[in-house]
Design a protein around this nucleic acid. Sequence first.
DNA 1: ACATACCTGACTAAAATGGTCAAGTTTAGA
DNA 2: TCTAAACTTGACCATTTTAGTCAGGTATGT
Lengths: 141, 141
Amino acid sequence: MKLTSKGRYAVMALVDLARFDNINPVSLRDISLRQGISLDYLEQIFSKLKKNEIVKSIRGTQGGYVLNKNPNDIKLTNIFHAVDEKVKTVQCKKESKKGCNGKSTKCITHNLWDELEIHINTFFENKSLKDLLNNNKEKRV
Amino acid sequence: MKLTSKGRYAVMALVDLARFDNINPVSLRDISLRQGISLDYLEQIFSKLKKNEIVKSIRGTQGGYVLNKNPNDIKLTNIFHAVDEKVKTVQCKKESKKGCNGKSTKCITHNLWDELEIHINTFFENKSLKDLLNNNKEKRV
DNA sequence: ACATACCTGACTAAAATGGTCAAGTTTAGA
DNA sequence: TCTAAACTTGACCATTTTAGTCAGGTATGT
Ligand code: FES
Ligand code: FES
């Protein structure tokens, strides 16, 4: 089970953004330099964050991105959902009655993985961008 | 974040094994048929489970595998560790002082991922094979 | 005008995944 | 003793996913 870079970078970039967007929009170039993330990759990520209304974009010189919501209302779940970082512990299709083995009932561990998925998602639902900001106050410029 | 087949199959196979090993050793062929898992793949998995002393093997005709411990003492952690299904949420090396971005300090989200890792591992530490057996009693033959 | 910064889509090298295949060795039971 | 069941080991491989890169755009403040 591992977290992918896409999810990790998305959160990292948003924390950075949240720290600096008080006055001006923040350019991806700045985030790229500060956090050591490829600019081209960041653009892919922010395209999705924008589609999901987590950030707003401002084009042109001095442009950049700004949060579209209160940091308290941006949960990790929202971020992960936006960049398609999904938690998948079962192999079967959840809606179907069929199991992962092609049989007509769910496998003997299905419930376990379902529990696990809920357990992990709970973590993401309870963490907001605000929580992460408080954690890093001392680093604020 | 997804669970790999190796980990999922390992647990699935052990639950199956635990249910049937009361009297005789259970052959991988039986597990393969009952659970719909490739026999060759199971062999790889059980080789690791054996090395980690979770199961014992009995060779020859009528041979098979038997649990090497009480189901209550086999936690998911042990199983996952045995088959190298590890939870990895950070990108950096934990021991190092360096961050995932090549910089000299940990990145701004490092602590978050660390928390997440602990959160997930806690789930695995608290679940034993015994718990899974009880859950499936009604299916016992 | 022009530099800055967003926007979009195609492309790809490398790694991980989820197995298969081949060639054994051991042992119970006929 | 012969044979088939079942464990043992290691190499191999197709496909998918990941983690980006690259090459073009378009919008806009100064
Ligand atoms: S994981 Fe859902 S049936 Fe096996
Ligand atoms: S994840 Fe550890 S430094 Fe970024």
